[in-house]
Simulated scan of single mutants.
Amino acid sequence: MSAVSRVAALQLATGRDRDDVLEATDRLIAEAVGEGAGLIVLPELFAAPFVQPEPDPDFFVHAESLDGPSNAMVRDASRRHGVSIVSSIFESREVPGVYANTACTFVDGELVQVYRKSHLPFSNGFPEKFYFRPGQEPPAAVDTTVGPVGTIICYERHFPELGRLVALDGGVVLSIPVACASAPMKEVFQLELRAQAVANGMYVVCANRSGVEGVKDYFGTSAVYGPSGEILAVVDEGDGVAVADMDAARVASIRATRPFLRDRRTDLYGGLAVAE
């Protein structure tokens, strides 16, 4: 594996049923691969509509197992193209009535990591606690075709501790599937992603949906951020892929010259673990 690879955030327009979304996603994956991407990140719950402000018991019809149709398409595309893909599904767990917001990382067609969203909102129009059981495992880096990659999911970008865990585990890329709406949040959204990149000296690949779905207007802006917080590639609206180079050697150099990981004082951070 070369130190320089290419990574991509895949953005999807709203308003299609699952079969249409899967077809569009497969096409966009091929487009990203054609541009040299070895890692492709999909939006949060990419093949399903996202939750609306009012809890809806009928929404559970969109749930599927880890080997359901959404991941089946992603697994096949990962195998065909020899790339790594981070999928995101509304997972129906083994126990009936238990669901999770789940990211799955496929490498060359093999499922190498399952990460379940551990921080769930019930505010600002996102009542996720009604639908999902929170994950119990912290994010971790996993080897992919572009190097070690760790994943957190949407709301979790508000918690800097999670990105830091991925960096401490050796991650050179932080993957973030999101479903982000509301124009006033757009600037904060980009600020947080750039801060994750700078504080941890790593690349951030964030994939969003775009367009109106129910009462929500998703603002797109799927992007790749460099380890100095710069925007390397972005898709503003509609379907598209943001593809950019990812240099693992640059990550190592920046962590040496801006040694934030080295200079941590964990002996002073005990207060971070104080329970309610």
Score class of each variant (00 low, 15 high):
Tyr131Asn: 10
Arg27Met: 03
Ala9Lys: 02
Ala9Ile: 02
Pro160Met: 09
Gly229Tyr: 11
Tyr269Val: 13
Ala37Arg: 03
Thr25Trp: 11
Ala183Met: 14
Leu111Gly: 03
Arg264Met: 13
Glu137Phe: 12
Val4Ser: 13
Val166Gly: 01
Cys206Ile: 06
Glu54Val: 15
Ala8Arg: 06
Gly238Lys: 08
Thr144Asn: 05
His158Asn: 13
Ala275Met: 08
Thr221Asn: 09
Arg80Gly: 00
Thr145Cys: 10
Ser78Met: 04
Arg250Met: 13
Arg79Cys: 00
Phe122Ser: 15
Asp108Tyr: 03
Ala37Gln: 03
Leu272Ile: 08
Val146Trp: 04
Leu39Tyr: 03
Ser65Lys: 15
Val178Gln: 04
Gly163Asn: 10
Asp20Trp: 00
Val86Pro: 05
Thr257Tyr: 10
Ala100Tyr: 06
Met202Asn: 09
Ile85Met: 03
Tyr115Trp: 04
Leu10Tyr: 01
Glu137Asn: 04
Glu213Val: 08
Pro57Lys: 13
Val7Phe: 06
Leu10Thr: 02
Ile89Phe: 07
Met246Phe: 12
Pro227His: 12
Arg194Thr: 04
Pro53Gln: 07
Ala24Phe: 00
Pro134Ala: 03
Val215Cys: 09
Ala8Tyr: 05
Ser5Cys: 12
Ser123Gln: 13
Leu12Thr: 05
Leu174Asn: 09
Glu192Lys: 08
Gln190Trp: 04
Ala3Gly: 11
Val172Gln: 11
Glu161Ala: 15
Ser5Tyr: 09
Glu161Ile: 13
His119Gly: 01
Pro138Glu: 03
Asp236His: 13
Arg6Glu: 00
Glu35Asp: 09
Val241Ile: 03
Thr144Glu: 06
Val198Gln: 13
Val146Tyr: 04
Leu39Trp: 03
His81Trp: 03
Thr151Asn: 02
